[in-house]
Structures are given as C-alpha cells and as structure tokens.
C-alpha cells in the first residue's frame, strides 16, 4: 500500500509543478521566460510519462519537445527584433473573448475525448485501470497481461509496430501536416531577388534604443 501512497504524492507534486509552469508560460511578460516555463512544463509531462512506466515516451518527449521544439522557439524569439524578449506580450483587447471561447472549447473537447476513450475492437484495453503486469507469466492471468508486459519491456519496438499498423493513417497524416508546414515556412521566408532589393536594410531600420544589448552603451 505504501507504494501507492508514494506514487500518489509524487503524481500530485509533479502535476502541481506542471500547472505552475503552465501558468507561468501564460502569465510571463517576458517571452524568453515564457518559453523557459514551457520547457519546465514539458519536463513535468516527461516525468508523468516515467510514472506511467512509459520511459520511451518520456525520452522522446525530452528529445523532441525540450531538445528541438522549445529550442527553436527560443531561437525564433532571439532572432526577432525583440531580442531580450521583454516587450509586453499580453493579448490585445478585442481578441480576449474569442481566445477565451476557443480555449474553453478545446478544454471541453479534451475532457470529453479522454473520458470517453474507446479501444478498437480486438485490441487490448489501454484505457481504464492501469495495472502493471507481473514480469513473469502467471497462471490464470487476464488475456491483456502478456501483451502489456511486452509493451513495458520493449516499448520502442511496440510503439514502432503500432505506428506501422494501427496508427499508420494518423502517422502519415501527421507527416503530411509537418511537410505542409515546412513548405509554408520556406514559402514565407523565401523572397525573390527583386523583392529583397526593395526591402529596407533591417539593421538601420531598428529603433535606436530597442533590442540593443547593454554592451553598446558601455563602448
């Protein structure tokens, strides 16, 4: 029983930290600080994956979200004119209400979807009571135990197999979406030679006091 209590306390602590980090992301006035809070939130999610014994997912979460996505975010912030990230970042007035409505709708959809999750017919029930299967085979164990034991012990292989069988469609669609986003980003960033010549040179276009690190003032 002691292990359950410890697990519950750990879960509550991690979830509370995650909520604090999420609030910090939304409420920070400084963009770089907001991005760092987001990193903290991603890390809490990875911790929750570890608690669910999904170490593979935890490693992937750290590798992709913290190691690539958040770094690109910070990179993007630092390459803009607002280098220090300390311009005010609050949502402007007329967009507040639509933003609130959209957020609440997403929340409702997620709550509904998570509470009513169904497994495809024929597959083992992944939702519901999560019980760790015993590591050795026992007589009279339920049918899902063998499959779940395999999943815990060799998660990389199982995740890969699921991607190529049950979730092949979703996997390909996500890939298509990412490719479209990539092409769109290139199209936005790419300007042909004539257009580039007409643009004002960006360095001179900066206001004198914005985005200047302190080092210049000293020199």
């Amino acid at each position: 029983m002691g292990e359950v209590v410890v697990a519950r306390i750990l879960f509550l602590a991690i979830a509370a930290l995650g909520l604090l980090a999420a609030l910090g992301t939304v409420l920070s006035r400084n963009l770089v600080h907001a991005a760092l809070h987001l990193v903290g939130f991603f890390f809490c999610v990875a911790c929750l994956f570890v608690m669910l014994e999904a170490e593979f997912l935890a490693a992937v979460q750290v590798l992709i979200y913290i190691g690539a996505v958040a770094i690109l975010l910070m990179f993007g912030i630092m390459l803009t004119r607002n280098t220090r990230g300390d311009d005010a970042t609050s949502l402007s007035g007329p967009w507040r209400l639509p933003g609130l409505v959209a957020g609440l709708c997403l929340f409702g959809a997620l709550v509904f979807g998570i509470n009513n999750a169904v497994s495809p017919s024929g597959a083992s029930p992944w939702a519901g009571e999560a019980a760790r299967p015993s590591l050795v085979e026992r007589e009279g164990e339920p049918a899902w135990a063998a499959e779940r034991r395999r999943a815990v012990e060799d998660m990389g292989r199982v995740v890969g197999e699921e991607f190529l069988t049950r979730y092949a469609m979703a996997f390909e669609l996500a890939g298509l979406l990412l490719t479209a986003a990539l092409v769109g980003a290139v199209a936005l960033a790419h300007r042909d030679e004539v257009g580039a010549a007409e643009l004002p040179p960006t360095v001179e276009a900066l206001p004198a006091d914005s985005a200047e690190p302190v080092g210049t003032a000293a020199s």
Binding site: A59, L63, G67, A68, M74, M155
Partner: peptide, 27 residues
C-alpha cells in the same frame, strides 16, 4: 532498454546551458 535514446535526449538538453548563458549575460 532505451539507453541510447536516453543519452541522445540528455545530450539535447546541453544546448540550454549555452543559449541561456548567452542570453542571460546581456552582452
């Protein structure tokens, strides 16, 4: 069972030390 993935994941965190040092130095 995912040792190498862990090493890669941890290695990808190292960039934070450098980028935060550069940003926080204000220089």
């Amino acid at each position: 069972d995912m040792g190498l993935l862990y090493v890669l994941a941890v290695g990808s965190l190292a960039v934070y030390g450098v980028i935060l040092a550069g940003w926080a130095s204000n220089n």
